[in-house]
Design a protein around this nucleic acid. Structure first.
Length: 297
DNA sequence: CCTTAATCCTGGAAGC
DNA sequence: TGCTTCCAGGATTAAG
């Protein structure tokens, strides 16, 4: 089973990058597929000649931040590359001396002066890469459209967002403008953990239910990070390393199978065009209108 | 303004 | 066995 890069996977990639490439200098950048660099970015400037100073993350997106020493110790020219892995994207670090063979899906390779390499690979190319002249520009022009990070958002802030939408809670939680980091897998797992119906309208979610959501969400994500972290060594990638990383899905991908809580068959519907699996019995805590909608399926 | 639907893309699974 | 069809997913864009 493929590992989808949601927040926990991305967080582990960032930690891996911090341990491996931060401090290294980029000697050369190979762009094997130009259109993987999105927007008006100039592909030639993907931190070439710069030193990785920091890795930032917001939700599922993260940024490689580099600096160039223009004058000795006085003026630093900053730049950064924002990455989004989409569905099948991965970033893998090859230590100096380790052979690597780029295939047709390896789109960008950073060659470091110490001989290490960093390779971005994405078969389906839902992912991409954006360049900015500073972290501030990235934050103001791109990350400003995202909600708060799923790991740090407070119940009060989430409740504020949910209150003003009539969309199903699942749609709202998938929307990165509501909060950043959740994907289809974790949303289904989270709603099951909170016993909330996926079609429950956002504005009907109570303060108490939002508190439960945030509490469960933090626990879920933290646990997933810990599980993924145990497999990290030299590699910055999570796909292709299955050892020890079997995520325990209670509902995702288990439609028709027994609900782990009550034993009834899990049901599969479509919400916001996404496959949604849940337990009609355990997650029946919907009110009036939405309950009728749910029953229509 | 709010919400939904189509679009992108490829590999793997399922169907004939 | 080999071919075709369908499906999975996140974010952007267009349309309702």
């Amino acid at each position: 089973m493929t590992v989808m890069p949601e927040l926990p996977e991305v967080e582990n990639i960032c930690r891996g990058l911090t341990d491996t490439v931060v401090g290294s200098m980029v000697n050369r950048v190979t762009i094997r597929r130009v259109d993987i660099v999105r927007g008006s970015s100039r592909p030639a400037d993907l931190l070439r000649g710069q030193t990785f100073t920091r890795i930032d993350r917001l939700g599922k997106q993260f940024a490689l931040i580099g600096q160039t020493l223009v004058h000795k110790g006085s003026l630093n020219k900053e730049a950064c590359v924002c990455l989004h892995l989409g569905m099948t994207g991965s970033l893998r670090f090859y230590p100096p001396g380790e052979p690597y063979r780029p295939d047709g899906h390896t789109h960008v390779v950073w060659h470091l002066t110490d001989g290490g390499r960093l390779a971005f690979r994405d078969p389906r190319r839902f992912g991409g890469l954006w360049t900015f002249d500073s972290v501030t520009t990235l934050t103001e022009t791109r990350w400003s459209k995202l909600g708060e990070d799923a790991l740090t958002i407070t119940p009060a802030r989430l409740h504020m967002k949910l209150k003003r939408t009539r969309r199903p809670i699942k749609s709202a939680l998938l929307d990165q403008a509501t909060l950043a980091g959740l994907g289809n897998i974790y949303v289904d797992e989270l709603l099951f953990g909170c016993r909330l119906h996926p079609l429950y309208p956002g504005h009907e979610v109570t303060r108490e239910e939002t508190q439960l959501l945030v509490r469960k969400m933090r626990a879920l994500l933290t646990r997933a990070i810990a599980l993924g972290g145990s497999t990290l060594k030299d590699y910055v990638d999570t796909s292709g390393r299955s050892g020890g990383f079997q995520r325990v899905h209670k509902v995702y991908g288990r439609s028709g199978q027994a609900c782990p809580r009550c034993g009834l068959p899990l049901v599969r519907i479509a919400v916001a065009g996404r496959t949604t699996v849940f337990c009609e019995d355990c997650q029946a805590s919907v009110m009036s209108r939405s309950e009728r909608v749910a029953k229509d399926y």
